[in-house]
Amino acid sequence: MALATAFLILLVAAPAAVYGASHTVGDTNGWTTGVNYTAWTSGKTFTVGDTLVFNYDSSHKVDVVNQADYSSCSSSNSIKSYDNGPTTITLDTAGSNYYICPTPGHCTNGMKLLVNVVAAGTPATPTTPPTTSPTTPATPPTTTPTTPANNGSPPPPPPPPNGAARSSYMNLVGVPLVLATLIALMG
């Protein structure tokens, strides 16, 4: 019985550990000319396990390239090529990932994407700092307000930004599930 319980707990925990966020490249514009992909990545956090969804028509393609080929808009040494959209690419390693459209003239006109990927569990920091700053700095309260609704308890912390939410969820849900599985196996 303990083994069956442990197996059930692992089945429930597995989807939470496997799936990351899905990012549609260029949002509603998709993978096409005339989109500022540097601005699109601004403020976003990309984490190992997330996916990039490239939506494009037959006039475009997606090539995964190295930094030098990204800079020179060359697809002659592409790591991987996709030519039948939509294409979903899983971000499986931390670091810089480079994508270009190899159609002549497209990359040189801005159809290229640099995504900085952080390891799962790494504190979220946006790929590019936001271009605007708040007009007034936020000052934390010096005392914790209490209301009848929270019975004297401090209010819950604000939700974490994009990538950290997933990481916190795994810390709050995944770790206890793994511990419960181990306890069930031992008991």
Rank of each mutant, 00 (worst) to 15 (best):
M170E: 14
T139Y: 01
N36E: 05
P155E: 05
A119G: 14
T90E: 14
D57V: 09
K80V: 10
A94W: 05
A39W: 04
T128N: 15
S72Q: 13
T32I: 10
C101E: 03
R166A: 09
G34A: 07
T144L: 02
S78N: 12
G110N: 04
P130M: 11
P161I: 11
S76C: 10
G121C: 03
S75P: 13
G49A: 02
S75Y: 10
Y70V: 03
N150I: 14
T103S: 15
P145Y: 01
S72Y: 08
L91R: 00
T93F: 12
T132W: 03
C107E: 09
P157K: 01
T144E: 00
A165P: 01
F54P: 00
T128I: 15
P148I: 11
T132P: 13
D63R: 07
I100E: 00
A149I: 14
A39C: 03
T47G: 05
T88D: 03
G163P: 00
T108D: 13
Q67H: 08
P145M: 00
S75C: 05
S72P: 08
N162M: 08
D92K: 14
C101Y: 00
S59M: 09
I100C: 03
R166T: 13
V65S: 04
T142F: 00
G105S: 11
N84G: 11
S96I: 04
S153R: 15
V53C: 05
N151M: 10
T90N: 11
S75T: 13
S153A: 15
P155R: 09
A149T: 15
A39L: 08
A39K: 07
K44W: 12
G85I: 06
T38W: 06
Y99N: 07
P158H: 07
T127N: 15
S133W: 09
T122S: 14
T132Y: 04
A39N: 14
S74T: 11
Y169I: 07
T90K: 09
T33F: 06
V62W: 00
W31P: 02
S96G: 13
N66G: 14
V48W: 01
T144C: 05
A94H: 08
T108R: 11
P140L: 00
T51G: 03
D69V: 09
I79F: 04
F54Y: 12
H60G: 03
P126E: 02
Y169K: 09
G121I: 02
T139A: 01
G49F: 06
C73G: 10
G49K: 01
T90Y: 03
P157W: 15
N55H: 06
Y98K: 10
N77L: 05
N55F: 02
